[in-house]
Design a binder for these strands. Sequence first.
DNA 1: AGATTTTTGATTTACGTACATCAAAAATTC
DNA 2: GAATTTTTGATGTACGTAAATCAAAAATCT
Lengths: 345, 345
Amino acid sequence: MRPTVHDIAAEAGVSLATVDRVLNNRPGVRSVTRNRVERAIATLGYVRDVAAANLAKSRSYPLVFILPSGENAFMRGLESELRFAMSRSAAERLDITILSVPAFDAPALAAALLDARKRRPAGVAVVAVEAPEVTEAVKRLCEDGVSVVTLVSDLPGSGRDHFAGVDNVAAGRTAGSLLGRFLGGREGPVAVLAGSMLVRDHRDRLEGFRAVTSEDFASRQVLPVIEGQDNPLLVEKLVGALLERNPDLAGIYSLGAGNRGLIAALEKAGRAKSVCTIAHELTPHSRAALLSGTIDALLNQNAGHEVRSAIRVLKAKADGLPVIAAQERIRIDIFLKDNLPLEQE
Amino acid sequence: MRPTVHDIAAEAGVSLATVDRVLNNRPGVRSVTRNRVERAIATLGYVRDVAAANLAKSRSYPLVFILPSGENAFMRGLESELRFAMSRSAAERLDITILSVPAFDAPALAAALLDARKRRPAGVAVVAVEAPEVTEAVKRLCEDGVSVVTLVSDLPGSGRDHFAGVDNVAAGRTAGSLLGRFLGGREGPVAVLAGSMLVRDHRDRLEGFRAVTSEDFASRQVLPVIEGQDNPLLVEKLVGALLERNPDLAGIYSLGAGNRGLIAALEKAGRAKSVCTIAHELTPHSRAALLSGTIDALLNQNAGHEVRSAIRVLKAKADGLPVIAAQERIRIDIFLKDNLPLEQE
DNA sequence: AGATTTTTGATTTACGTACATCAAAAATTC
DNA sequence: GAATTTTTGATGTACGTAAATCAAAAATCT
């Protein structure tokens, strides 16, 4: 049987009240006595029963999630995963509030962070936009003792506790490697289509892609980056022009969103099969394109995992428990038409 | 605030004792009363506080894990993940016992299942070997009301509750697809190296590999399967002979274990770079070979995830709770040298 | 030594559920 | 309508921890 506070009291030869004072470091315990209790804890291998403690405290975990609004399919998937987690959160004493903020809008995001702060949550998860005012707001939260997890897009230098997202440099490298190997000896330049260079994850992916291309496929020409603002219509226009300008285009790496435009442009130009295409994020559109062969490989981050990981980490931080790094690492999924999971997920 | 049993009693106009009788379906409640309580539960949206209930019951979850012994690196990794999960299981009321059984030994496995049964656990996780006696033993456990999860290798037709492992047909297809595309227009046959055709996962992988090769790369010749019994020494010998027989060999798909022998044979023959190699499972040896270029891609199943998933599922089954399929799907990791996670994991 | 402060003990209530007991009320049977 | 059975209520204890109160003991200071 696991030892309880009573066992510690007996072992240390003190009263329950004193054990409680030590465990919850309340004042009024001489250091000799404190030591005795701590020794008892160590020898018996006592571990606080978090469930019982939470019950006694009627503890709940008020969390705030800040997500971008807009029609970005990945973000909407993220939100739906979050709502699902909320629906079954009853058993976990979670009390989650969602705040929506226009995408790429740093002032609005900073304001939302201040709003979140007023609610005195135990933790905040935020899809970060890299801007000084956002960094500042996150810093403020951390100083207040609120745990902060960045979600999908990181915010280095803000003091956030954890990043729940993929290694985007590695993602870019992987895309470059796959594209290079899929093309083999085939001639022609490759293009990179990004959303915006203002977001950290896109910059990281580009960096990784360029690095691996120059290391391993030095002879391959990489055309200047196209920024499609994650907007399908704009993307379609820009890719259409790109295809016209480059009749010998061998491959495209689309590292942002707006894949609907990319797919449309490729198919309209009749180049769906001849241009090797690697894109990000599994959505109904990109899934269909992968199956039809318009897209050759998809890199994906599992939104459900990211949400659950963020919640786990925030809870652990609130309880002062350690985080298991290996468990919280969000992996880069690589999907070919052959290992696509079933639709319903 | 979440409603409690007291709220239900008030709402239904009955006593706490009656609510308790309904909730834990004890006898002695007229169906009219029962209905009234159930309606109250529904309208208030009551969900039993599992933590409090477990506390009151002093419930624990006695689980048995049955793993193959031997020096298979993946299995040892699995066991170490399991031990790690056990070490931090104090807070989760888990009481896990590990049984070791010689690999590929159906009678021993069946005996271990019977042994497990005697311990009256809440659940059993087992790395299955496909044999009638094993299927029979699993069936028996299920009939006793013990939840059974197959781990890594499945056992269809046994009535097991869940399979915690990857879709091995999809894994084989993915390997075939990658190998085909990496080889591009290059000439030469490819070879398949398996452990044993007696294990389900190996058979599934082979099936997937063959299917995709004949669908998408019909002109590519696939040599007869080599069975290396997951034994590094035997594998090295067999692959050495294979390389000698086929100087024009373009690729190898190793779908089992014993990669150490494969790597040694390729490097000894000086064909490490010229033969495109795809293998399974990330181990220190395979990791090094991926980084050096001897292996071109690794398919991996994350042992930590499998263990944690098996535990979660067994717990959920023991509590009569539903399993979230999307969360429990074990994905096939594809590692290139570019997206290899850091060593310590 | 006496007064004062600090430390410790003893005890109680609470969290939400499980489970047991005994008495009271209601329904059923004869 | 009385006797019997079934159903329901009232109450208490337990699980392991948190948190509070008040008294007792010990340490510190003057």
